[in-house]
Design a protein around this nucleic acid. Structure first.
Length: 283
DNA sequence: AACCAGGGTGATG
DNA sequence: CATCACCATGGT
């Protein structure tokens, strides 16, 4: 586990002894799209209908206006605190490129995001860019999500709600051709035609096949949903940046020694090459 | 103006 | 199985 204790402090929860977390980088490395830096070092977001403002001071995290119960039931899990990232880095460290990427941003953690929100978010990510994805997701929540008490943000709209919408309803999102994909996803999830439960444990290829029954979900989006929404740490989404990195540094594929955490390594690598494009050139 | 963005679909070899 | 035009939108 990557913190030592959490205590109530007024109306806040304070987490001490936090390791392997840089909040700013973790919330802005392209894995999630619903966190806003409302002030310097103050991040606001909503997960599973619960809002929070979080600040970080070194190894101390403060969850504002949060109860211990909320921290234990939502935020501990969301930030993947059960995982010891020292062990992750030790395993990735057997590979020089992965070691370099993890050292560049040692505070990245791979979040455990809600499956439905993750599915929608990465359907919207197809042939799109991160800042625009954020805007579309925000408009989706602003227009169709339920208000969250004590926050200006809304919950992510449910599949039930979205299953009743039309493409015209989604026009204000300006999501282009992806609107139809969102509605298809909502209808399949709400009807039970796509059941999330088995996806946590099925073999990756079978879980991928299930997710790909949704329109607009191909190999890359499915891998993102498995990694970020179902904590399948072995899944490696291959977007344009990772494809370049693989071509440059892993022409014969990733080393099998890191396979079980390759998706986590992918997150370090994604952030690394985006901020160091020279790392994509042959030496 | 052409190209790119955390790609996918459908048609065609 | 591989390739390719096309897809809506906004930024550079």
């Amino acid at each position: 586990m990557d913190y030592t204790n959490r205590i109530t402090c007024g109306s806040d929860v304070v987490v001490n002894g936090v390791r392997n977390l840089d909040l700013a980088v973790t919330l802005d490395c392209g894995q999630c799209f619903r966190w806003n830096a409302i002030e310097d070092n103050v991040f606001e977001g909503v997960v599973l209908g619960t809002a929070c403002k979080i600040t970080q001071d070194g190894s101390t995290l403060r969850f504002h206006d949060t109860t211990i119960e909320e921290f234990d039931s939502i935020w501990h899990h969301y930030f993947d605190f059960d995982r010891d990232y020292n062990e992750v880095k030790k395993q990735l460290g057997s590979d020089n490129v992965m070691a370099r990427a993890a050292e560049f941003s040692p505070g990245i953690r791979v979040l455990r995001q809600p499956p439905w929100e993750t599915l929608c978010s990465f359907i919207l990510s197809a042939n799109n860019n991160i800042s625009r994805i954020k805007g579309i997701v925000q408009r989706l929540c602003d227009i169709f999500g339920e208000p969250v008490e004590g926050s200006n943000m809304n919950a992510f709209p449910t599949a039930e709600k979205m299953a009743a919408l039309t493409e015209d309803d989604l026009a204000p999102l300006r999501s282009g051709y992806r609107a139809a994909y969102l509605i298809d996803a909502a209808q399949k999830v709400h009807s039970g035609q796509l059941d999330f439960d088995p996806i946590y444990t099925l073999p990756i290829d079978e879980a991928t096949t299930l997710l790909r029954t949704v329109k607009g979900v191909g190999p890359k989006v499915a891998a993102c949903v498995l990694l970020y929404g179902f904590a399948r740490a072995e899944c490696v989404p291959e977007d344009v940046w990772i494809k370049r990195a693989l071509a440059t540094h892993y022409p014969t594929g990733l080393p099998p020694e890191i396979a079980s955490v390759a998706g986590l390594g992918q997150q370090y690598l994604f952030h690394y090459v985006r901020h160091n494009p020279h790392a994509l050139e042959v030496e």
